[in-house]
Amino acid sequence: MRRITRITTVGIASAALALSATACGKSSSEGGSASTSDSKATKAAIAYDIGGRGDQSFNDAAYAGLKKAEDELDVDGSEAEPSSGEGDADKVQRLTSLARAGNNPVIGVGFAYAPAIKKVAAQFPDTTFGIIDDTSVTGKNIANMVFNEEQGSYLAGVAAAKASKTGTVGFIGGVEVPLIKKFEAGFAQGVKDTNPKAKVLTQYLTQPPNFDGFAKPDLGKAAAEGQLDKGADVIYAAAGLAGSGSIEAASKAGKWAIGVDSDQYNQAGLAEYKDSILTSVTKDVSDSVYNLIKSVKDGKPQTGEVRYGLATDGVALADSNPKYKSMTDLIAAVDQAKKDIIDGKITVKTAP
């Protein structure tokens, strides 16, 4: 059965969003593929991050996991959109409403949900709460779904260095927070390890507590245009919905863009620019959502840190673009880098 209930809360307060810490949580169940369960139906909910569903990236990947659970596990799914200019109080209200409605699990898409999950999870001890991209908040009923973004970004750096003709590439971060710094660090390291003479231009769209850098495509477009003017011919943006603006700018300039989180070559909303999307650093947010829902349905809910890395295809580099598939030297370099990371020959930095 597929029954989506869209829940939107009205802003209560304009308190600044809390940043997540980068400390590791306790280890527990591992993510991975799972088979269909025949147990009783489950109600599950996801609360979207900034930009909401339709961002062609992070939130849409989470939705894909919920939809898969609906289709394969007979789950009734609910979605909750963020409000403009919201604070932690709005998130608390949203998660509380979803939990009271009987959803289990309730998943916060993004580190900004950490303060709210810490509060609401304590009030609903029999409900499993999932949070993506955060390990700062822990509890017996909290699953921290995290990724080695730096590893996938390293591969993007290798690809960018190989594809660049000018020797100058760009990185655009949505908001300058520790999570996005991981993307920057891996990308820059991959570029420099491949071509020590290459130049990496770096720009962040906003600084916290302003999170517009994850939500406004015009900001990404302007930043990309500036990097293109400085000679960049490959631009990698880790900026959520704002990243679509950088893809547009690169495409119109006849240069390469590298997508993030979802395989953006296959995103319908970016079809006009797909030929310019060389590749994308994918995070298996979809399976992380699906796996948590299934674990609850099976009566063995995941808790603690559930990590997805390169070795388990939790992060990867997409090869959907036929032009990418034709670049044999680039693919060979990426494949070798992937092997070296998995084998421990390359240690990827998590901070610039």
Rank of each mutant, 00 (worst) to 15 (best):
K294M: 14
G231W: 09
T328H: 15
Y324M: 14
Q203I: 12
L317K: 07
S286M: 08
G269V: 05
S136Y: 12
S262T: 14
A101Y: 00
V285L: 08
G174T: 00
I46W: 11
K119L: 08
A253S: 06
R2K: 15
D284W: 01
G32S: 04
I277S: 04
S28M: 10
I341F: 07
T168Y: 00
F124N: 05
P209H: 00
G102A: 02
S280H: 08
G170S: 12
G226F: 10
P115N: 01
G344A: 08
A101H: 00
G25Y: 03
L205V: 07
A34E: 13
F58P: 08
S39M: 05
T127C: 11
I277G: 05
Y113D: 06
K68A: 14
T5E: 15
L292H: 02
G243D: 01
A222E: 13
S28R: 11
K283Q: 11
D126E: 14
V10H: 15
A89H: 03
G110S: 01
R2S: 15
Y290S: 09
G344Y: 11
C24Q: 14
D38G: 13
A239G: 11
E70P: 02
E70L: 00
G190T: 00
P352S: 11
K43G: 02
A64R: 11
K252Q: 14
F171R: 04
S288R: 11
P125L: 07
A18E: 14
F211L: 00
S164Q: 02
T36E: 15
D233R: 05
D284Y: 04
L205R: 07
Y290D: 08
F129C: 09
T135F: 15
K216C: 00
I7T: 13
V285T: 05
D335F: 06
V285H: 04
G25Q: 01
K43C: 06
G240L: 01
L241I: 13
V334M: 10
Q56G: 02
G52C: 03
A223E: 05
V177E: 02
I172C: 10
S295R: 06
T194I: 03
G174L: 03
G108P: 12
A64P: 04
A112R: 12
A253I: 08
D126G: 10
T328M: 15
A222Q: 14
G269W: 03
V106G: 05
D133S: 02
P301S: 12
T312E: 15
